[in-house]
Amino acid sequence: MSKSIYIALDFPTWEESRQFLSENGLHEIPVKVGMELFYREGPRVIENLKENNHPVFLDLKLHDIPTTVMKAMSNLANLEVDMVNVHALGGSEMIKRAKEGLESGSNSSHQTKLIAVTILTSMDNETMNQEILLPGELEKNTVHFANLAKQSGADGVVCSVHEAQKIKDACGIAFSTVTPGIRLQQSGNDDQKRVATPGFARKNGADFLVIGRSITKAENPYEAYQQAVKEWETDGIIK
Rank of each mutant, 00 (worst) to 15 (best):
47 E>C: 04
87 H>I: 11
212 G>W: 03
19 Q>R: 13
5 I>M: 07
56 V>M: 07
139 E>K: 14
87 H>S: 12
140 K>Y: 06
123 M>Y: 14
175 F>K: 04
76 L>Q: 08
145 F>P: 06
120 L>D: 02
236 G>K: 04
10 D>I: 07
165 Q>W: 09
132 I>L: 15
229 V>M: 05
101 G>F: 04
199 G>K: 02
129 N>E: 13
185 Q>I: 11
33 V>S: 01
177 T>D: 09
127 T>W: 05
112 T>S: 11
122 S>Y: 09
73 M>Y: 08
20 F>V: 00
36 E>A: 12
52 N>C: 09
214 S>E: 01
6 Y>I: 06
144 H>T: 10
8 A>E: 01
26 L>S: 03
122 S>A: 11
67 T>H: 11
99 K>A: 12
59 D>I: 05
70 M>I: 01
84 V>P: 07
220 N>S: 14
155 D>Y: 04
25 G>C: 01
226 Q>T: 07
227 Q>G: 11
54 H>G: 07
84 V>G: 11
178 V>E: 03
62 L>K: 09
34 G>W: 05
66 P>K: 13
211 I>K: 02
202 R>T: 00
55 P>S: 04
157 V>H: 10
165 Q>G: 05
178 V>G: 02
216 T>H: 05
211 I>C: 03
136 G>F: 04
171 C>W: 01
55 P>T: 04
25 G>A: 02
149 A>R: 02
119 I>A: 04
80 E>Y: 11
2 S>T: 13
229 V>F: 01
230 K>P: 08
72 A>H: 07
100 E>A: 13
188 G>R: 07
30 P>C: 04
